[in-house]
């Protein structure tokens, strides 16, 4: 495993030099603050990388799978395809939970599950380097350790960086990551024992702060629960908004619509959609198989904890806690899982 140490100002310099390097343009996304909000923002030399945060409000899936994406434009009978965006993408500073979500999205958008490889998602994804930043202060509502993740988890990351105060320890976990460190090797210093100790300590503290749920045998329990009245109870207070799905790093449902302009031209756009909306399953006939919110919430839980484990082998939840923190009525997915477990 290739490793290396950089101080924070050195990282700033490294990225500044990478925006255009050897004639290749890269889009680099880093944590930054805009008016007090921490967001993942495109890097420029003037933009200072921000390290003191728990996680972003928005999941990073939008980089590869934007909320709104034009697939083609048309004029009368003639359609013009809009090609997938090219160019290298470097994402720095997302948390390991979010990096892990890319593994799941990859399965959805590559040919494996459906036989259709999505050129838009994959075009961006294949040309990307993910450098995640280990978690120091998990938020209330985080539960990644129950789902196979952790504050220093490497799945989905090409490189994991550990914040050791004034400096960062980089560890490569894929060929892409090794290449990245190798290409920039003159910049990196080798870590010593003190660095490794500091890393261990910060991880342990974070690990202890993360809440836990049990997902043992959940797939079978959910099978038994499908028509249970319990769904009605837990969704009684649900407002039916789409916060949980839009902020979820693994939710990936979308809708494709044609939007016509007044002059006969138009575009075909792909937009995020949410299973929490009645319109999501509304048939042209007016019939709606999921007309009630208990059915829609059941779909959300089942999709993550029952259907995808069967079709892809993974629970489609990384435990980032966004839905827990941002639900307007505090409908806590951890609590739902605990109830299914009979706790």
């Amino acid at each position: 495993m290739k490793t290396g140490i950089l101080t924070k100002p050195e990282i700033q310099e490294l990225f500044s030099s990478m925006i255009t390097k050897n004639g290749e343009e890269s889009r680099i996304f880093v944590p930054a603050t805009i008016e007090g909000r921490v967001i993942l923002e495109e890097f420029s030399p003037e933009r200072e990388i921000f390290y003191d945060f728990a996680n972003f409000l928005r999941p990073p899936k939008g980089i590869f799978f934007p909320q709104r994406e034009v697939l083609c434009s048309f004029e009368q009978e003639r359609a013009v395809e809009v090609p997938p965006a090219a160019g290298r993408i470097i994402i720095f500073g997302i948390r390991p939970c979010d990096a892990r979500s890319f593994l799941f999205l990859d399965k959805i958008f590559s040919a494996g599950s459906s036989g259709f490889a999505d050129p838009y998602y994959l075009g961006r994804r294949e040309n990307s380097v993910i450098i995640s930043l280990s978690c120091i202060e998990p938020s209330e509502g985080c539960f990644c350790t129950s789902l196979g993740g952790g504050p220093g988890d490497e799945s989905g990351s090409d490189i994991v960086a550990f914040d050791l105060g004034d400096r960062l320890l980089f560890e490569a976990h894929s060929a892409k990551g090794e290449n990245f460190i190798e290409e920039n090797t003159t910049e990196f210093r080798q870590p010593d024992a003190a660095d490794q100790n500091a890393k261990k300590e910060s991880l342990q503290a974070a690990f202890n702060a993360i809440s836990r749920i049990s997902t043992d045998g959940l797939v079978e329990k959910l099978d038994d629960d499908f028509s249970d009245s319990f769904w009605e109870e837990i969704t009684a207070t649900c407002l039916g908004c789409g916060v949980c799905t839009y902020l979820c790093p693994t939710c990936h449902c979308f809708d494709i619509t044609d939007e016509k302009d007044r002059d006969g031209t138009g575009t075909r756009v792909r937009t995020w959609d949410s299973c929490q909306y009645p319109l999501f399953t509304m048939h042209a006939s007016g019939h709606n198989p999921r007309a009630e919110k208990k059915q829609r919430m059941r779909q959300r839980i089942m999709h993550k904890f029952s259907y995808t484990p069967r079709t892809t082998g993974d629970v489609f939840c990384v435990g980032c806690g966004r839905c827990v923190r941002k639900c307007p009525v505090n409908l806590d997915i951890r609590e739902v899982i605990r109830k299914i477990n009979g706790e």
């Binding site: 928005r58 909320q67 407002l239 039916g240 908004c241 789409g242 916060v243 839009y246 902020l247 949410s274 909306y277 307007p328």
Partner: peptide, 10 residues
């Protein structure tokens, strides 16, 4: 705005 409709639903 991410058009999650939370304002309307609440």
């Amino acid at each position: 705005c991410i058009r999650c409709n939370a304002c309307r639903q609440a």
